[in-house]
């Protein structure tokens, strides 16, 4: 059904059902960690996660009703942000660590073996601390993640597509407001919380841009074997930004 036909509760339920499973690296990363080993593991995971992300996007009510090119465009623009918000969510109960997968977690020190990673790690750890302080709920998290996808690009193929997308975003915003409304907050605290949650998204966009530049740099230096889908998504990003 179209998201407008769903209540906010039903939409949240659909977003919860769309959540991807835990994705395992399935390889033991032997110590000592090196730049090559860490980059290989992280790009391997990112590539696997991309496939699950496409399944996730297709389950978001209304997404597949957008034109195919628009679906492609939105996913290309937001894929690293979506992966990063997932990483932050998984890491929220593990202060000082980033949980890349159930079988791969790295501390700041372990991540520092990759050149240029510390800055990105620190930004991700800071965003995770903020999410911890805000006590983000699962219902709010699924809405924010859908918003990242739907708000990743405003330039769609037609004005019809753009209005479809805006209606989708409105439905997800209503769902987020309704999730916040389930808490014991006063009205004033509720809209402050809404603002705080939405402000997180600009930080995530910023880290994602840093991460994209880093990955591009690593590719240029032949530091990592890039998997086909990951390479396609990275190239699309470079193409759009140039």
């Amino acid at each position: 059904p179209q998201p407008s036909a769903l209540t906010s509760e039903q939409l949240i339920e659909r977003l919860m059902e769309a959540e991807p499973p835990g994705i395992y690296l399935m390889k033991d990363m032997k110590k000592p960690l090196t730049e090559a080993k860490v980059m290989m593991s992280l790009t391997n995971l990112a590539d696997k996660e991309l496939v699950h992300m496409i399944t996730w996007a297709k389950k978001i009510p209304g997404f597949v009703e957008l034109g195919l090119l628009d679906q492609v465009h939105l996913l290309e623009c937001c894929w690293l942000e979506v992966q990063m918000v997932g990483l932050i969510w998984r890491s929220v109960d593990h202060p000082g660590k980033l949980i890349f997968s159930p079988d791969l977690s790295l501390s700041r020190e372990e991540g520092s073996c990759v050149q240029g990673f510390v800055e990105i790690f620190d930004m991700l750890l800071a965003a995770t601390s903020r999410v911890r302080e805000l006590k983000l709920q699962r219902e709010e998290y699924v809405c924010l993640k859908a918003m990242i996808l739907l708000n990743s690009n405003m330039c769609l193929s037609s004005s019809e597509s753009s209005s479809k997308l805006l209606r989708l975003l409105d439905a997800v915003t209503d769902a987020l407001v309704s999730a916040i409304g389930k808490t014991v907050l006063t009205f004033r605290q509720q809209y402050t919380r809404l603002a705080h949650l939405l402000m997180l998204l600009s930080h995530i966009r910023h880290v994602s841009n840093k991460g994209m530049d880093h990955l591009h740099c690593m590719k240029m230096k032949n530091m990592v074997p890039l998997y086909d889908l990951l390479l396609e998504m990275l190239d699309a990003h470079i193409m759009h930004s140039s």
């Binding site: 696997k48 496939v51 699950h52 496409i54 399944t55 492609v72 996913l75 889908l229 396609e232």
Partner: peptide, 24 residues
């Protein structure tokens, strides 16, 4: 190169009715 050729895998995964996870 057409946009479709540049984004071959993503297009295929989005277009296919089978779950992309099963395809992969």
């Amino acid at each position: 190169t057409s946009l479709k050729e540049k984004h071959k895998i993503l297009h295929q995964l989005l277009q296919n009715s089978t779950s992309p996870v099963d395809l992969a």
